[in-house]
């Protein structure tokens, strides 16, 4: 369980990182927190000739909030994000998801960008990114592009990122409706381990309690997190009654086609997904009621 030999550099600027990536082509790889990459290299599931360490690039850490969105720079530690008042106040759904990310020792080192770039099918941050249609910024030498979360995640460790691109930022839209509620829940073998099934949901209503926007995304039931668009369509214009939720859960279960693995059968995952969707929708609805009564 030792990684194969590789060379290592620690550039001081983002420009130097992009230059090194450009030169290394498919033999280079970014290392940030290393909480996914280091074990993958130890098990020789990933090989690199050159690791480019971005931990010391000041411009890659921090959280910025505007009226419309909250941006997290790639190298921001998961522990820092989980403790961020900005995230708790402006993006409660992400704050709830971050409570489930890793253990103390891995959160202190693991980064938000790494969680997205390595794209584990049940990792929490990608599920929220899918739910809210986050935009991911990728830079390479001489160019920059924004990738919608819906087009970013393919499967575990497989994303739209090119070999020479560096993920620099994830921008989560902030919903500005008068009343917004959210919910996040997951089922895992050991608390804070990767989830068997995880669900994120966010609801907005008008002042009369009629749903104006709804988003649900599920992790652990496909090679990447999936957003269930049918749920949004089914709930909008409805009063968010139990019957509406029953219908929404049915649509989720119908849309999922999980695989069986050593941890859980496909049937189990599907059944649990239906239950968790129900639970997070109720959690989001309770927040909506609370906000309306204030």
């Amino acid at each position: 369980m030792k990684a194969a030999a590789f060379d290592y550099i620690r550039p001081d600027t983002l420009e130097a990182v992009l230059e090194a990536l450009d030169r290394a082509g498919d033999e280079g790889r970014i290392i940030a927190g290393g909480q996914t990459l280091v074990p993958m290299m130890a098990m020789r599931l990933v090989k690199a000739e050159l690791l480019i360490d971005i931990n010391h690039i000041q411009t890659l850490t921090g959280i910025d909030t505007s009226a419309e969105s909250l941006s997290i720079r790639a190298c921001t530690r998961q522990a820092e994000a989980a403790a961020s008042k900005e995230i708790i106040n402006n993006l409660p759904l992400l704050a709830k998801a971050l409570e489930h990310v890793g253990h103390t020792q891995t959160r202190n080192r693991g980064t938000v960008g790494g969680s997205v770039a390595n794209a584990d099918p049940s990792a929490e941050i990608p599920i929220v990114a899918r739910c809210l249609d986050a935009k991911i910024t990728a830079l390479k030498k001489g160019s920059e592009r924004q990738i919608c979360a819906g087009n970013f995640f393919y499967s575990a460790m497989d994303t739209a990122l090119e070999d020479t691109e560096c993920l620099t930022e994830i921008r989560f839209p902030i919903w500005n409706e008068e009343v917004v509620g959210s919910g996040f829940h997951e089922v895992s073998i050991r608390n804070s381990d990767y989830a068997l099934v995880a669900v994120a949901a966010q609801l907005a209503t008008d002042s009369g309690g009629i749903c104006t926007r709804a988003a649900v995304a599920v992790g652990g039931c496909a090679p990447a997190a999936v957003k269930i668009d049918a749920v949004g369509k089914a709930l909008v214009g409805r009063p968010l009654s139990d019957t509406d939720f029953d219908e929404a859960c049915g649509l989720v279960v119908e849309a999922l086609d999980p695989d069986t693995d050593v941890h859980a059968t496909a049937e189990y995952r599907q059944r649990v997904a239906g239950r968790i969707v129900r639970r997070v929708l109720e959690e989001a609805r309770a927040e909506v009621y609370e906000a309306r009564n204030e």
């Binding site: 290393g34 909480q35 280091v38 074990p39 130890a42 098990m43 522990a79 202190n108 080192r109």
Partner: peptide, 23 residues
């Protein structure tokens, strides 16, 4: 040696981390 058991934990710049998950 792949970040699951925690037996290798050390304090790195004031924060506990797994020393098997850092070069």
């Amino acid at each position: 040696e792949h970040g699951v058991c925690g037996a290798c934990s050390v304090i790195h710049d004031g924060a506990p981390v797994r020393s098997c998950l850092m070069y």
